[in-house]
Amino acid sequence: MVRRKGLPGSVFVVVALAVTTLAAAPDAAPDSERGQIIFQTCEGCHQVGEGARHGIGPHLDAFFGRCAGSLDAFKYSGAMHRYGEDGLVWNAETLDAYLARPQAMVPGTRMSYRGLTDAAKRADLIAYIASATAVDPTLAPAPRAEIGAAAMGIDGDPDYGEYLAGESVTCHQRSGRTDGIPSIVGWLRGAFIRALFEYKTNVRQHQVMKLMAVNLGNEEIAALAAYFRGFDPQ
């Protein structure tokens, strides 16, 4: 089994993740057979399994662990390409967020699908896509990047970060004190960048933070990380 830092190593892990997110709904263990029925809506554009080929949408074989927008022979939207370069990798969590509202997660995606609001149905669908894959998932191409990688590669401007942090410190205290709002002082740079990127891509769900992160580009995220890294709590 190939292990990749921060990513599920295989489809089996992926399915297990989907199960845990559903713990709240008792009789709703993800069911790939129900998922197959739901997948009929997708079949007009997507193929999965033995011999799957691109159609209107890219094929979904060996989908999990694949970097977004990464198959050569398919013409993706610029948005999907950018998200891939930024480190968006498909796994159960990211696909779940995407299926809930594709345009919200990847604004500008060409996939003309409004979204599936029912979390249990999404889990079924994800279970089906995982089970239908024909190619050994461990042979899938290695992701191009770790989540948030593009931001991690940038040497952020701490002055810009200081200005942007003006927004952060309206809620998060510079002293690192928490009074109902978590501290963001003293985080490791990687974790800080990853967290912001996860809000941006809806993997983390907090409404206010999603809003704060949605307009942050890699420059901004790197700048904030640079500022808070060099930040001496008062």
Partner: peptide, 9 residues
Amino acid sequence: ESVGWYKGI
């Protein structure tokens, strides 16, 4: 969170 915001701002 609103209580935290009040303290923060």
